[in-house]
Amino acid sequence: MSIVLENVCYTYSPGTAYEIHALKNINLEIRDGQFIGLIGHTGSGKSTLVQHLNGLVKATSGRICFNGEDIYAQNYDMRRLRGKVGLVFQYPEHQLFEVDVLSDVCFGPKNQGLSQEEAKKRAREALRMVGISEEYEKQSPFELSGGQKRRVAIAGVLAMEPEVLILDEPTAGLDPRGRDEILDQISLLHKERGITVILVSHSMEDVAKYVERIIVMNQGEVMYDDVPREVFRHYKELERVGLAAPQVTYIMHTLKEKGFDVDEDATTIEEAKETILEAFRKKGSKT
C-alpha cells in the first residue's frame, strides 16, 4: 500500500510566455504509515506536488499509482481517492464556504455518504481535536480570526478520516500553543491509526520534531530525501536553496567549534539539551 509517482512533470500555462515548469520528473514512493515532511523554498513546487496526490491537479506527463492502481486510468474513481487522501489547503479561505462552522466541517463526511447524525458526530470530534469549542459552531467561518479559520479547515479534513493526511502549511498563523497542540494531535493520529501524514512546512523546527523522513524540493525537483539528521547535515546547501537547519543545529555546530564534546547533529531542543548536559557531565568527571 503506497503512493508511487513515476516521472511526474507539471507545467503551468504551457505554450505561453508565462510557462512554468513547476514539477520536473518527480519519482517518489510514499509508503503506508510514514510521517513525511516536505520542505522547499517558496515556489519550489510543494503545493503543486501535493495537489497531485489527491488528483486535484493532473500531471502533464508521468504516472501516479495509489495502492497499485493508476489514478489516471479511465475508470478510476477520483471521488473515492479524495475521500482517502485528505488535503488541507495552504490558504484556509480556499476551503471554507458553508454558512456556519459545523456545516462546513460536516461537508466532507456527508459527501462521503454518511448520515447527518454521523457526520455531525465526526465534525464535533474533529473540531474538538483542533481546539474549536462549541460556542463557535454556529459562527460563519468568514467571521473567525486567521488562526481559527485554519483550525476549522483542518477539522474539515480530519472529519473525513482519511488514510493519507496532507497538510499544506497547517501551522502558519497558529499561535505557538495551537501549533504544538495540532501537531501533537496529528502525531497521535499517526501513531494510533497508522495513517500516512505529509506535512508541508516552512518551520524547520516543526519538521525536525515530528517527521521521520524529509523530502526537500528545489526548483521543481527533489533535492534530498532522507531522515532529518542526514538532511539537516547539509545545512549549508539548504541555505543556498532558501532553507536552513533548525535553530538548535546552529547552536550545536558553534559549540562544537568552541570545543564542546556535543553531538552536532542534534535537531530538537530535547536532543540539544541532552547532549549539552552530557558534555558537562563528561567534562566534570574528567577534571
Binding site: H41, T42, A172, G173, H202, L243
Partner: peptide, 12 residues
C-alpha cells in the same frame, strides 16, 4: 499582520 507566515526561512 503576520507578514512572514507563508515564507521559507530565507524569505522570512
Amino acid at each position: 499582520d503576520e507578514p512572514t507566515a507563508m515564507l521559507d526561512p530565507n524569505g522570512r
